[in-house]
């Protein structure tokens, strides 16, 4: 297992290199001008100067090479320095990946925005899992019961209504008409005491609800299908024939088997949290990673968009690996060697 992990990690390097090249090239080819958002009265020569100052005069491969160096060498060095409070080499003049629109390092921007996204989206993921697993188990065990059919109905809604619609819907219902929750997420809010904690919960409810609905819908169906698959297996009959209680049969024998694909899917879907965040953050004005990305795209901020997209790719590769390893741990039939 250890050797397998190492080998997979080594394989991930060329994969990520190819991905980074494709991302860089695609975004470079995309139309857009970093000066387009500047005031209209700036003369053309000045605009050209600005472009050159941003490095756009250089050929593609030079810019790609520099970005690679900044992303893979300079940024990690910088992180090490911050974590351990040491200075490695010429850290003053080491170039970091800088955002064109804000001129601050992209990584710093991401670190700044990350907590908002994790709070809202991460919480939605946790809530989604916590609802989906038991509902899926009960729906499968009581297949075609009222509970199962109600669950099917709600998950169909969750499946078919996209967050940009359900988001607006809950805002209209719960903020505009009922006035229970704010429609805008206040990113600057700091939790200091009980009251501010309640306020934080209060403003998280709507965005978490919208995202969790989607996650719950997908995961419930998956959990249910996996349970149904296993409930019909011969080993379940064996467990009953041994005189095990229904509880032990379902929650031990069947669930332990059903969780294998479910846990894998949960791990695989972690990166998609950030994808889902993009739209939800727009709707509720959450100032997180998704908002950062959209802002970067609108401003033609290539380094920001390239870096964020690439980090997204790293997460996907990483969680694929995590899913595979979890599979190996959970299923004794899988041997990686």
């Amino acid at each position: 297992m250890f050797r397998y992990t190492i080998r997979r990690l080594l394989f991930a390097i060329p994969t990520l290199l190819v991905i980074s090249f494709i991302i860089f090239a695609l975004l470079d080819l995309a139309p857009g001008d970093p000066t387009s958002q500047l005031p209209i009265n700036i003369p053309a020569e000045v605009r050209q100067k600005i472009r050159e100052a941003l490095g756009l005069g250089e050929p593609f491969y030079v810019r790609y090479g520099l970005w690679m160096q900044q992303f893979f060498v300079n940024e990690p060095l910088n992180i090490l320095e911050q974590w351990f409070g040491v200075t490695i080499g010429d850290s003053e003049n080491r170039l970091r990946v800088l955002s064109w629109s804000t001129r601050s390092p992209v990584v710093d921007l991401i670190v700044e925005r990350m907590p908002q996204t994790l709070w809202v989206v991460g919480m939605a993921y946790v809530v989604g899992i916590a609802i989906a697993l038991p509902v899926g188990v009960i729906s499968a065990y009581r297949q075609y019961s009222i509970f199962d059919q109600a669950g099917t109905f709600i998950t169909m809604i969750g499946f078919s209504i996209p967050p940009f619609f359900s988001g607006v819907l809950v805002i209209v219902i719960f903020s505009v008409n009922l006035g229970w929750f704010p429609s805008i997420y206040d990113t600057t809010h700091v939790v200091t005491d009980w009251d501010s904690f309640l306020k934080q919960i209060n403003q998280m409810i709507l965005p978490v609800m919208v995202l969790a609905l989607q996650i719950t819908a997908q995961l419930t169906r998956f959990m249910r299908a996996s349970m149904l698959d296993n409930l019909n297996q011969d080993y379940v009959r064996t467990a009953r024939a041994k005189g095990m209680s229904e509880q032990a049969v379902v929650l031990l024998h069947v669930l332990r088997n059903s969780m294998i694909p479910v846990i894998t899917v949960i791990a695989l879907a972690v990166p998609s949290i950030f994808g889902g965040a993009i739209i939800t953050e727009q709707i509720f004005k959450v100032n997180g990673i998704g908002a950062l990305l959209i802002g970067g795209i609108e401003a033609g901020d290539l380094p920001l968009v390239q870096t964020l997209t690439f980090i997204f790719a790293v997460l996907i590769v990483l969680f694929n690996l995590v899913a595979d390893i979890l599979y190996g741990i959970l299923d004794p039939r899988i041997r990686y060697d």
């Binding site: 011969d234 064996t238 024939a241 959970l330």
Partner: peptide
């Protein structure tokens, strides 16, 4: 005690 037809599937694979 009950012994079933197919020994390949009658035992729980994860225990």
């Amino acid at each position: 005690g009950f012994v079933f037809q197919d020994p390949m599937t009658s035992l729980n694979p994860v225990f």
